[in-house]
Amino acid sequence: MLELHDITAGYDGGTPVVRNATLTLAAGESLGLLGPSGCGKSTLARVAALLHRPDTGTVTLDGEPVRGWRYRAPRVQRTALGIVFQQPRLSADPRLRLTDLIAEPLRATGRRDEIRQRLSGLAPAVGLTPDLLDRRPHEVSDGQLQRACLARALVLRPRWLICDEMTAMLDASTAAALVGAVEEYRAATGAGLLAVGHDHRLLDRWCDRTVHWNDITTAEVRA
């Protein structure tokens, strides 16, 4: 279970961009969260990925209440969640080759010995060829870079995957390929998914159920 209860979040003490949002995902479930751009859904996705501390509200991850965010979150909790962002250019460290980009979480958690074996499985699963793995971000297209970002999110085998507008910048074929890779991973591991986006046709097709932003914020709490 991934439960976000009555979350209010904002930046630097300004007016909150998320007000009283409540969202519950059952284990292995895929949920699409629909909302217009600028409504705060990306902030909620970062709260769910333990990357942004909410002003108020609670997050419960597989029965464990979350007590710290970012560096203060225990590593087991942080790495139980994988996240993919909208813009691959900004989500990739421009100095790292794609291999290092994907392997970075393994290195950060002291599991270097698994790199070779994990990469040989992941690269074909997300559609990256060996010659692409040797390049740096500015030498590949947006679509290829986003494939690497997805591989990085999957490399630690998270139980939950959060995709924030993952396909918004991509062409139809690459988008379908990435969604296919996510679904293959979920079928193999039983991981849950929170897909955030504005395209209802995409999310209706992709997810078990979809909710609209307006239905999970203040209104639902009052009801």
């Binding site: 297209s141 139809a172 046709r201």
Partner: peptide, 19 residues
């Protein structure tokens, strides 16, 4: 045809391989 079939309201299946 492949590009069109990749749309979520059509087959939602990617063209195999990469450009």
């Amino acid at each position: 045809r492949g590009l069109l079939q990749a749309l979520p309201d059509r087959a939602f299946s990617p063209i195999p391989g990469t450009p």
